[in-house]
Design a protein around this nucleic acid. Sequence first.
RNA 1: GCUGCUGUAGCUCAGUGGUAGAGCGCGUCCUUGGUAAGGACGAGGUCAUGGGUUCGACACCCAUCAGCAGCUCCA
Length: 660
Amino acid sequence: MNTVITLPDGSQRPYDGPVTALQVAGDISGRLASAAVAARVDGQLCDLSAVIEGEHELQLVTDRDEQALEVLRHSAAHVLAQAVVRLYGPKVQYTIGPALIDDFQYGFYYDFDLPEPISAEDLPTIEKEMAKIIAEDLPTERSELPIDQAKQRMAQLGQDYKVEMIDDLARDEGASVVSFYKQGEFVDMCRGPHLPSTARLKVVKLLTVAGAYWRGDEANKMLTRIYGVAFFNKKDLAAHLDRIEEARKRDHRVIGKQLGLFLLSDAVGPGLPLWMPNGAIIRMELETWLRGELLKRGYLPVYTPHIGRLDLYRTSGHYPYYKESQFPPIQISEDEGYLLKPMNCPHHIQIYKAVQHSYRDLPVRLSEFGTVYRFEKSGELSGLTRVRGFCQDDAHIFCTPDQLEAEIESCIELTQMILQTLGLSDYRVRLGLRDADSDKYTGDAAHWDQAEDNIRNVVGKLGMNFTEERGEATFYGPKIDFVVKDCLGREWQLGTVQVDYNLPERFDLEYIGSDNAAHRPIMVHRAPLGSPERFVGILIEHYAGAFPLWLSPMQVAVLPVSDKTNDYAATVLSALKAADIRAELDDSPEKIGAKIRRATLAKAPYMAVLGERETAAGTIAVRHRTGGEAGALAVDEFVAQLRQEIDSKGLETPLLPTGS
RNA sequence: GCUGCUGUAGCUCAGUGGUAGAGCGCGUCCUUGGUAAGGACGAGGUCAUGGGUUCGACACCCAUCAGCAGCUCCA
């Protein structure tokens, strides 16, 4: 049978019989053959050794192709597994080892069930063995076996996890054959494709070792996961490692310490952050701003205590659902117990219930910066992003079915406005839906369907990009989450809007409709920041500590050139303070260069350099933290410009005009 | 919570089975300097906590607490 290969440029190559992608590449050029890592036949990714017969489109995947990196890293994972088996013996069980493409730090991993624990100190040894395997230039050979034989083969090798995976493939995907890859003495069950030979792997580095549950299930055995990265050249690896190192400098835990923003004190307890004066300014500014926005939008402020009766949370469902992740109740007597509040909604619900509501009153929007406590598992705690005691910029909206979607929309717009103002544009939107197979959700299916339709309608109307994720809903309703990544690429939920038909039911909430009959309101739970703790943690990383002027703890560093001008500096300081600008005077006996350095490291947006010239002219020599002299300004001009930048919540620093 | 690692001065980190060091920061003094580090001197540590091994432990072992990476979880 004749074979005709059509290349991406439209040209065709005829062959008398079957041909492999690698052969075609070689016929085009030797260079292409050595650059190709895989092939795409009729759009389907496959090995270079795949046999092509008949009329097909062929595209050779080279290192310039995005998917090439995936193939490379997948092969790197196989070499890692081979090295581990060589070093730790046939008792090693290798399970799964995928390539990672979107991960900020890691390029691949492999999960092992090892006969002995290993640590990061063992990684160089493993890397050496991998280098050997690469040097051995072992060709990779693909083969296929029917399910039964495949299981037998893996069972013979003592690979119980693989046997389980084959069963899954047969059951879930109806697979009748399974493919294997063999390189030297090592055989792995794998879809592929892979590099044609281990020698094609040039730059591999192992990064860390960690635990990971088999199948990601806590109930299963913990396996040993080894993470690594692989690239086509050393330059890319060096750039990658640099990027990680740079990112670590943005870590809010590092910057938070440097700039005195917050503190996690062992004496107070894990996950209980203390806001230091500089951090408190940032939080205060955000909250003040948000309070104003809420009042404009018809929210009613309320305050509620930090604890409530256990029964309240039994009714709401929070206690039974999250018993394990609560601080234990405060038991006063056998039948009187209190819980640190894990959520504000039950308290707000009581406020709603305290008076009778007419449909004319709705929507009722009760807002509170309410502090809640959750006993997060110790391994989960992390800086400000995951804590045990934190505030929520919370509100609960009680409304009629007719009002619901407009309220959801308004919550989304508020959240988007906040993110936009702060320049947080790199976020994704997730619709958290219920998993109908799970028993973790409360309430009836009709309400769930209704609620899911409600949020879909709104995000659809607003034309938002979003992903739907089953099993990500709260126990009482579906939600819209705004998710961002931290400096190391880990995702965190910030803002959230949740639709709830269930708590109104549980608490028997009512309003009187125009028909003079009692109706059930619907609740919206929403927090545009999510939590000031987590939000500020993310903001610290977003700005790398260099906050916009309105949020900066120190807005102006007042720097006399020598103590001859200290008096003038003091008058400038007073003028700034009188204008509600956060200014600090550095009258230490340092030279001006050192003072500038200190203020720059403290991320003060502006420096007012005051020497004899300025004293004589009554001006300020302005410098921005990004460097360079911006010229001299009269004190009142400087104040006016700062005021404008502060009031506009400017992200970009306007250039201060030069001149006297 | 689980797997692995880590815990030494305010911070960042060296360090050895024979009772502790650097840089930065801090204090005092000198210097009066014009846009990212002037100089001198000085104070400061129950080497996370509790056990154990040892003539002797910051070092070795065990436990606890906390942190880091990952997994799991996240109302």
